[in-house]
């Protein structure tokens, strides 16, 4: 078959002199090579081998066998630490959410117009978010000792970072109309924020707070591993005595609670927005 080209003026097809080359795939090959190299280097660094995994599989099967059936009687003693986990998440989320309001206003470029103010605030928020909550908890445990307090503090900072980030991005995307109207009638900054900004973001704020609460419940469930209160402490307790059926009980209980809270919170969030 002859290669042809559409001629716009004569409204006919005319034979084409040359066939255009397909786009070069060189870049894709280089990227693929780079990724494969990265994977091999990582496998070397972590000493990951298929052999070890396959040799380990019977061990895992044995572990699963020991986990089943779960120790149903163990649910009773872990109700109280589970409630503590929920309390920690509630308080951590609340404190974080309260602190997030002024910080997100300070980080939004359409509320605070000066760069000297909103850039440092954003940097501070980024800094908070780079350190994982379990490490924050470990540091707070070193400062305040074992218990729920360091856990709550770690969750507070974590929530602060998350909610502030989501919230300031929402504030920057709000409708300018009401803000201009407020300025036009001579409102001061506080009135401007209270009547111009707040009504536009309050639903989002509640939604983000609920979302953070969901994340915090999951986080709070493992904070006990570093001694920061909640149900996580019981993993160490039972694993230390090789009571895997009890570990299974803790895992199942946590799963059920998290799924219930997730479901409820998602339903409420759907209603809010």
């Amino acid at each position: 078959m002859m290669k042809t080209e559409w001629n716009q003026e004569k409204q006919t097809l005319k034979p084409l002199g040359h066939v255009p080359d397909p786009p070069s795939k060189f870049k894709h090959y280089v990227t693929a090579l780079f990724i494969i190299g990265l994977l091999f280097a990582s496998a070397y660094q972590t000493e990951a081998t298929f052999e070890e995994l396959i040799l380990g599989l019977p061990e895992m099967a044995k572990l699963m066998e020991q986990m089943l059936p779960p120790d149903w009687a163990y649910f009773e003693p872990i109700v109280e630490p589970m409630l503590e986990t929920i309390r920690m998440a509630v308080l951590g989320t609340t404190f974080g959410a309260i602190m997030a309001v002024p910080l997100s206003l300070l980080a939004a470029s359409n509320v605070v117009k000066s760069k000297i103010l909103f850039y440092p605030t954003r940097m501070f928020l980024n800094l908070i978010r780079t350190i994982p909550d379990l490490l924050k908890a470990a540091i707070f445990v070193a400062i305040f000792g074992l218990g729920a307090i360091p856990g709550i503090l770690a969750l507070t900072f974590f929530s602060l970072g998350l909610i502030s980030k989501l919230l300031y991005e929402t504030i920057e995307a709000i409708d300018k109309g009401p803000l201009e109207a407020m300025t036009a009638v001579g409102a001061n900054k506080i009135q401007w924020i209270f009547f111009g900004v707040v009504p536009q973001i309050s639903a989002h704020f509640m939604s983000y707070t609920l979302y953070t609460f969901e994340v915090n419940i999951r986080a709070a469930a493992v904070l006990g591993l570093v001694g920061a209160g909640g149900i996580g402490h019981y993993y160490e307790k039972t694993l230390g005595f090789l009571q895997y059926d009890r570990v299974a009980s803790i895992i199942i209980f946590t799963l059920v609670i998290v799924l219930i809270i997730d479901y409820t919170s998602t339903k409420i969030r759907e209603k809010l927005l």
Binding site: E47, A48, T49, E52, L53, G56, E59, M60, L63, Y235
Partner: peptide, 12 residues
């Protein structure tokens, strides 16, 4: 924690 039981402690 569960995988540590299977393949031993370490990065893997």
């Amino acid at each position: 924690i569960i995988f540590i039981k299977a393949v031993g402690p370490g990065s893997f």
